[in-house]
Design a protein around this nucleic acid. Structure first.
Length: 316
DNA sequence: GGGCAGGTCTAAG
DNA sequence: CTTAGACCTGCC
């Protein structure tokens, strides 16, 4: 088995090393995650009970590690800074390896997508460095309920406010305190007023209702990973605020379902631009996605989404 | 200052 | 089962 890149430690820093298919901008700015912040090319990320700052090393820093023979000269390297109170080093390393989907070879995956047609060749070339993050299922459910008919800036802001209100403190970094995502019962116990103060508007009822159903066991979140894709999708639709598109996002980012094919405005635009003729029915667009991309529909969707949005394909 | 944002809910045919 | 309309809110 080919050795893909891994996370290794040096002093208090972690390094993503190897033959890298890893671009923080493309990973975080495609709308799959909401708990991150960019500053001067450095991305501070919160996931589960961890906080990290990730960025591309500059050439002089790179030289240091080349000299110390950790890397060969051809390797590109990225750095993840390990914050204090981050838990044991082993847990920390393995957590981020899983989060960044390190065990998959994206060079190979994008090659396979490129073989499907020239559109995907172009889209995967454009999105090179993207990876599908593996995130917490409950966090994805709440975050993507909030995402409906919303914009990414406000989604990020609202999610952050919910975390701040619930106060599950992880630790302090650069003068800022970071909180982990709340539990279902914590959100269920928030008052209407508290939830509305996060700016989620009419989605307040959806978030509260869904969190309550999960907290009291009326809806079993553990079942999702045991169900087939179709059944898991159907089961998610029982939650208030979860429609077909949101359910697919939850399955793609929160349960590693590569087949999930979220049809949003951008995917609808680019599917019409590349493959269809004025098809507006999301269900039919999704069926075309399955037909064209098979079990890699979700991955294809991500590259197409990013390509469409960044290039403003099909703008009115 | 009206329109838009990674859609969903509801009511009605 | 498919299809209009309404919909919080904050930034462009």
């Amino acid at each position: 088995m080919k050795n893909f890149f891994r996370i290794k430690s040096h002093n208090n820093d972690l390094f993503v090393i190897g033959n890298i298919d890893f671009n923080p901008k493309k990973i975080f700015e495609n709308g799959q995650a909401f708990r991150w912040d960019e500053n001067d090319g450095k991305y501070t990320i919160v996931a589960n009970e961890y906080v990290s700052r990730i960025y591309i090393l500059n050439p002089s820093e790179k030289k240091f590690f080349v000299d110390s023979k950790i890397l060969s000269k051809e390797d590109e390297i990225f750095q993840i800074v390990r914050l204090e109170n981050a838990g044991s080093l082993y847990d920390y390393e393995s957590f981020w390896e899983n989060y960044f989907d390190m065990s998959r070879d994206y060079d190979l995956l994008t090659q396979e997508l490129s073989n499907i047609d020239s559109n995907l060749l172009e889209a995967t070339k454009f999105g090179k460095g993207f990876r599908v993050l593996k995130q917490d299922l409950f966090e994805m459910i709440i975050s993507f309920i909030i995402s409906a008919n919303n914009n990414i800036k406000r989604i990020k802001s609202s999610v952050e406010k919910i975390c701040t209100i619930c106060k599950n403190e992880i630790g302090e970094f650069d003068g800022k305190i970071y909180y982990r995502f709340p539990t279902p019962s914590q959100i269920a116990e928030l008052s209407i007023k508290e939830l509305e103060s996060t700016g989620i508007g009419y989605r307040t009822e959806y978030v509260k209702n869904t969190a309550s159903k999960i907290a009291n066991g009326e809806w079993d979140i553990k079942k999702i990973s045991t169900l087939s894709y179709d059944d898991a999708h159907k089961y998610l639709l029982e939650l208030m605020g979860v429609g077909p598109k949101v359910a697919d996002c939850i399955l793609l980012f929160g349960d590693s379902r590569d087949i999930a094919f979220p049809v949003d405005t951008w995917v609808a635009k680019i599917m019409n631009y590349f493959y269809l003729e004025n098809e507006s029915n999301p269900k039919k667009i999704k069926e075309s996605g399955f037909k064209l991309f098979g079990d890699k529909a979700g991955l294809a969707q991500q590259y197409l989404f990013y390509y469409a949005r960044e290039n403003n394909i099909g703008r009115k």
